[in-house]
Nucleic acid binder design. Structure first.
Lengths: 226, 226
DNA sequence: ACCATAGTTCGATGGTAGTCGAAGTGTTGG
DNA sequence: CCAACACTTCGACTACCATCGAACTATGGT
């Protein structure tokens, strides 16, 4: 008698079309909400919720609560590698599908997340602030350093005005398209407002995209350089 | 709209416990018959037959007919790698099972396959004969070269006697434990008989194992050196 | 020609799992 | 406190599929 791992439960999880679509969506490295995954899979949110709990208890994905959302991502590199191997075998065996189109590149680059900046530009801003020592702490204990206070004030933000808001000044927010965090909270909102005010960027009326002007992008990248 | 591979059908194939056991058994590199796989999976041969045809049309395994047997093996390295990745994830997630024990090492080393020698020793003999230029051709068109005729005659085999048998003189036979071929046909049988006659080895009464004596093994390896 | 063995096909059965409507929990924001 | 939103739980329905008995095909040995 020898003990060994069984692939059946793992494979069965990936064997359902709805769950397979969810996993494929997560394979891009994005962290997605339950609703978004339901949409990806083409099922209702109830059904998606059931699938997600199965995937989570099966150890394939991990969920993190964030406000009233719940973000899911693959639980590790090994899962991603496994899925890619399966993709390879599926491709060789001739199993294809038609996916709904990938997200707009503009959405990926810059968009609003509630009232603050997300996407590549949002992540870049967050990284720049952290690397420059303007932000300290982690997750919910994120705070603005004295140097940071000076920096954002110099950028034209009225710290006193937003410091009295009920909501936290600084908060991490898991990014949708990158697998990284960007800045939320009152400060995140104020920074985006200031970007609008300086006419560096404007918000798209239809989508959640944020369009930077050529000059605005140049200035933004210079100010928030990694 | 974008096209891409779907993992669902592949994963669903591996998601059934019976099929998963079959795949796990094949992961060792052995080629197994339908009956053996049925036994591994703990289902009847009818059920196994259904599973095997699904696995084959799904592109995960390939079957080769050999006499009244049908040997199945994984269809490629990519499938084996995929299964191992799944094993890894399953192990991390804590999915274990109890397998029926691995084959006896003695069985793996040398055994009878119908009436000829199989296992590591059988594969070695086949390779040695092929490398020395005693055998030529492939698969069903396998034949003994003039040099080979001289060699086996010198080993004490009466070629005229077995040349008149209805069955083919030389035939490849897919090995069960190695992933290689060994020699079947009239010549294969005659070679094993000669090994018995020389008292290099004897057949186990209970199992299909062939026990070599220390001296016999030495002489065998010297004669059939790769 | 005959029987034994290996494997496949067919048909009926039963269990399981995906699906969604409806109702419930918890969080955000006014 | 209430309304909106994201998500979960419950329950019932449905559909699929694994399973096996029985019959059929094919190959090999005597």
């Amino acid at each position: 008698m020898k003990e060994g791992p069984t692939i059946a439960p793992i494979a069965a999880l990936a064997g359902d079309p709805a769950r397979a679509n969810m996993l494929a969506a997560l394979l891009s490295g994005k962290a997605l909400t339950a609703s978004e995954l339901a949409n990806e899979a083409g099922v209702t949110v109830q059904t998606a919720s059931s699938h997600l709990s199965k995937l989570e208890s099966g150890g394939l994905i991990a969920g993190v609560k964030q406000g009233r959302h719940r973000y899911f991502k693959l639980s590790g590199h090994d899962v991603a590698e496994m899925l890619e191997k399966m993709m390879g075998v599926a491709a060789r065996a001739g199993h294809l599908r038609t996916r709904t189109g990938p997200s707009d590149p503009l959405i990926r680059k810059a968009r609003v997340c509630y009232d603050h900046l997300a996407g590549e530009m949002g992540v870049r801003m967050f990284d720049a602030l952290a690397n420059a020592g303007h932000l300290a702490g982690k997750e919910d204990k994120l705070r603005l350093t004295p140097r940071g206070e000076k920096f954002v004030t110099g950028f034209g933000i009225d710290l006193d005005a937003i410091a009295n808001e009920r909501r936290a000044l600084c908060k991490e927010c898991l990014d949708w398209s990158m697998r990284r965090h960007h800045l939320a909270g009152g400060l995140g909102a104020a920074l985006l407002s200031r970007v609008y005010a300086l006419h560096w960027a404007r918000r798209d009326k239809q989508s959640r995209a944020v369009h930077f002007s050529p000059d605005g992008e140049r200035r933004f990248l210079r100010l928030f350089r990694a």
